[in-house]
């Protein structure tokens, strides 16, 4: 075990640390968590003086991290004179663990602005965990249900395999696809993309927003037998229609 640990520690290639507006953004990269921590440790040791005093936003992607993992990460940073302030994740359990530790789960300034249905354009590059190598928004895949109080936000498209329960929130720069029942609040095209769509096996959101438009599910939608539906903006209003591969498949 020990030798393995050391061997991996040398390879710090996929740890990226970059300056963002309010501190440092550290991306953990793929691989075993213990190896990632070792790589991070090595990297911070090498460039310790440079990073000291930094406010860290940790980007963990799809990796599922427990409260204990996050505490270990916070401890690692504090050993190097840094402060873990926020965790950006695409895993709802990780987000909750982070919130339990009073860590932020969004970058500064990106949260409250969304609730009005309109997003200031300068927030674009601040929202969400998934900014790809070339500044292209990434698509995000979330496994498992989002429960009340859990939220996912991304610059790009969001796909959720599982239900989005009432009280949960999904915010995407692009489209939102729910392979399950969508009953929470959903915002597609959050930066103003009026071509964004929302689709779900059962489309019954508490509130559905596309770009700057807001609608609620009609009461009947909750009573009839659910069918897969797709919502989009047409003639300046949001319409939901039954999914038809022939009609929508070539979009």
């Amino acid at each position: 075990m020990v030798s393995h640990y050391n061997a991996q520690a040398m390879e710090s290639g996929s740890i990226t640390i970059k300056g963002i507006r309010d501190g440092l953004q550290v991306t953990l990269g793929d691989g075993e968590l213990v190896d990632r921590f070792a790589a991070l440790e090595a990297r911070l040791r090498d460039q310790n003086a440079f990073f000291r005093g930094g406010e860290v936003t940790l980007v963990v992607g799809y990796r599922s991290m427990t409260r204990t993992n996050l505490e270990a990460a916070a401890e690692l940073f504090s050993r190097h004179g840094m402060n873990l302030r926020a965790v950006l994740s695409q895993d709802s359990g990780t987000l909750d663990a982070a919130q339990g530790l009073k860590l932020g789960t969004r970058l500064a300034g990106s949260g409250s602005g969304l609730s009005g249905g309109q997003v200031r354009s300068d927030e674009r590059e601040l929202v969400g965990p998934g900014i790809g190598p070339e500044g292209q928004p990434e698509a995000v895949l979330v496994w498992g249900a989002l429960r009340s109080g859990q939220a996912v936000s991304s610059d790009g498209h969001v796909t959720i395999i599982g239900d989005v329960n009432p009280g949960a929130e999904v915010i995407a720069g692009g489209a939102v696809v729910v392979w399950g029942r969508l009953r929470g609040v959903v915002h597609a095209g959050a930066f103003g993309d009026r071509t964004a769509v929302v689709c779900a096996l059962e489309l019954a959101p508490t509130q559905l927003r596309i770009a700057e438009m807001i609608t609620v599910s009609p009461v009947e939608a909750r009573l009839r037998k659910p069918v897969p539906e797709i919502a989009s903006i047409r003639d300046r209003q949001i319409v939901a229609e039954r999914w038809d591969a022939g009609l929508h498949g070539r979009r």
Binding site: R67, D96, G100, R147, G149, Q150
Partner: peptide, 12 residues
């Protein structure tokens, strides 16, 4: 209850 279940999941 749904919120609690989410918190319990995060708490292992």
């Amino acid at each position: 209850a749904d919120r609690i279940i989410g918190l319990l999941q995060a708490d292992e």
